[in-house]
Amino acid sequence: MSIEHRDDTGARFGMWLFLYTEVILFSGLFILYAVSLAKYPHQFAEASHKLNIYFGSINTLVLLTSSLTIALAITAIQRNQIKPTLILCGVTVGLGALFMVNKYFEWSMEISHGIYPGSEHLAEMGNGITTFFNLYYFTAGLHGLHVVLGGSLIAVVAVLVAKGKVTAERYTLLENSALYWHLVDLVWIFLFPLYYLIL
């Protein structure tokens, strides 16, 4: 019998530490947002009104639901219910993809209205509105990248579940991927009201 070093709690704690650094990464962007909001309160409100609240709300529902499905997937694998685990992972990845499709339509619409970083139309609206949209594209873009990475990670782990490499006895990989996915949800929980809902 081979001797195996295994520390599930340590692996999870390592993931949490990594997620803390992710929070610090995003918090830098939120601080920039806060400082700019203090400087240009009226322009930020005006710019926020140009965002489509329906896209934002629907994407919030999509992400919250995907967070539910991946949390359920953990319970399923702990109970050794492999098929439900795979279905729940699939739904999570599908919802992540739906989020990105919505984002595609949302950004296409905004770009077609001349709202994108560096556009002349935006420059004419002044510094406050330009700052808002630059931060919006950067923060939401970085968040979107996290959605793509998290979704890919879950898809890969789902394949490992199907192959029997991730099991009820050993599911840390799935659990850590789920933690990452929840972080994506957490960032959106703050991003949505701050960018879409300023009055």
Binding site: S67, A71, H182, I189, F190, P193, L194, I198, L199
Partner: peptide, 23 residues
């Protein structure tokens, strides 16, 4: 107060995600 209310609700939502969804 709008921004503080929004942040307050977001914090409650985050706590739910962190403590329960993230175990």
């Amino acid at each position: 107060a709008n921004i503080w209310i929004a942040l307050g609700i977001a914090s409650v939502k985050s706590s739910l995600v962190i403590f329960i969804f993230m175990h």
